[in-house]
C-alpha cells in the first residue's frame, strides 16, 4: 500500500470550530485510534507539515491565518476538511461572518463529513489524504 511508503506529518488548525471535531482529531492520536500507526505525526509547525487538517467553518478573522498556514507548508501539500462546518459551513453556514466551508479559502482535497466527525471518518480522511499526497508527489517529481 502506498500509505506505508512515507510518513506524512499533520498540522491541525481550528478555524472557528466548536471544539467537537478538534477533540476528535486529538482522539485519533490517543491509544484507541492511534493514527501514528500510519506513520503520521502531529506537528505544530506548518513548515514541517504535509497534511493540513482544518476543522471549523472559518470566519472573517481566520481567513488570513488559514491562508498563511497553507502558504507556509512546503509542496506537495494536502488539505483535509474535517467536519460538517469545514466542508460546507454546516449549521453555522447562515451565521453572518462565516465563509461556509474551507474550500472558499484554500483548495480542499478531502472532505470528511459528520458533526462531529467520528475518529473513524477522520482516519479514513487522513488515509485518503495520504493517497492524494502520494499522487501529487508523483505528478511533481
Amino acid at each position: 500500500m502506498s500509505f506505508f511508503s512515507r510518513s506524512p506529518w499533520i498540522l491541525h488548525y481550528d478555524g472557528s470550530s466548536c471544539n467537537g471535531c478538534d477533540i476528535e482529531v486529538l482522539a485519533c492520536l490517543t491509544p484507541l485510534y492511534d493514527v501514528e500507526r500510519f506513520g503520521v505525526l502531529n506537528t505544530g509547525n506548518p513548515k514541517h507539515a504535509d497534511i493540513l487538517l482544518v476543522t471549523g467553518s472559518v470566519n472573517e478573522r481566520n481567513i488570513e491565518i488559514v491562508e498563511n498556514l497553507y502558504r507556509q507548508m512546503p509542496d506537495p501539500k494536502v488539505v483535509v476538511a474535517v467536519g460538517a462546518c469545514a466542508c460546507s459551513g454546516g449549521i453555522f453556514a447562515r451565521a453572518y461572518n462565516i465563509q461556509g466551508g474551507i474550500d472558499k479559502v484554500i483548495p480542499v482535497d478531502v472532505y470528511v463529513p459528520g458533526c462531529a466527525a467520528r475518529p473513524e471518518s477522520i482516519i479514513d480522511g487522513v488515509v485518503q489524504g495520504i493517497a492524494a499526497l502520494e499522487a501529487k508527489r508523483k505528478k511533481t517529481a
Binding site: D14, S16, S17, C18, G20, G56, S57, N59, R61, N62, I65, I91, F92, R94, A95, Y96, N97, I98, C115
Partner: peptide
Amino acid sequence: GYIHRGLEMMVERVEYTEMGFVVER
C-alpha cells in the same frame, strides 16, 4: 474573535425549536 461565529445572532434566522441544536454547538 478567531472562533466568533455570531451564534447569538443566529436566533434571528433559526426558529426557537431548532435553536437548541445551534446552542449545543
